[in-house]
Amino acid sequence: MQATSKGKMENISQEPKPQDQQNQPSTKIEIEAENLNFFYSQKQALYSINLKVPEKSITAFIGPSGCGKSTFLRTINRMNDIIPGTRVEGKVLLNNQNIYAPTVDVVDLRRRVGMVFQKSTPFPKSIFDNVAYGIKINKLSSSRAQLQQMVEQALEQAALWSEVKDRLNDSALALSGGQQQRLCIARTLAVMPEVILMDEPCSALDPIATEKIEELIVELREKYTVIIVTHNMQQASRVSDYTAFFLLGELIEFDETEKIFTYPKEKKTEDYITGRFG
């Protein structure tokens, strides 16, 4: 949490000098959508989305239900592929490589782009095996000792290790909701992704568990590019560096979070975040 607020303070103090912004070191773009259209059978759900997400940043997608924010999130790891009748036009670039190119291995793409879901989804396995599953599948460890060490590291990163280290062989289903969600994050981290997508990761959690996850998300920015879909605008403003506002399948506005929440350029964004929407 401290990291964000500090970052924001610096930005505010820079604001009176607009020329500063041009001089900022140009950050590397991790994810880029180019004229992305998306269809569920006949129904178009996304309309020519253009978006550039810088690496090692946290981007929040906000917007009312059905605005396409989750759909867009799921195009980034091609999770929509498993829904019959869906169709994509345009490009999504991950490190300048079009993930919809025919040569792309979807299974490997999904390892590189991890995903955490709204409902925590522990596998009906032990805590250890939940984290180990992805490592084993992707053959990331060469020995039992290395596997154990990777599991520990992932749990540590997800701020769960101290809570579960004495009961790694217990069923993951016995954990609390917040712990399960952190387990799911640990499981995602264990396969060493570049990007982490989060689809409303706190919407089923109480405020304390939510705060823990939010702190975790902010820490993840050190190593990963994080995109989080949230219905909670306070959450978006608390954790994210950039915010994208979607409405009816269109990207209305994308900017630094403090700009979106203090002076959005688009009236539709202003109406939505001040609750005039509807």
Partner: peptide
């Protein structure tokens, strides 16, 4: 979402079905 969670870890679909779905 359990299937999707397993797929999101980079598991091929047949493994997801046999190791996650059927086991669940």
């Amino acid at each position: 979402t359990l299937r999707e969670a397993a797929l999101a870890l980079g598991a091929p679909y047949w493994r997801v079905v046999l190791e996650i779905v059927v086991v669940s």
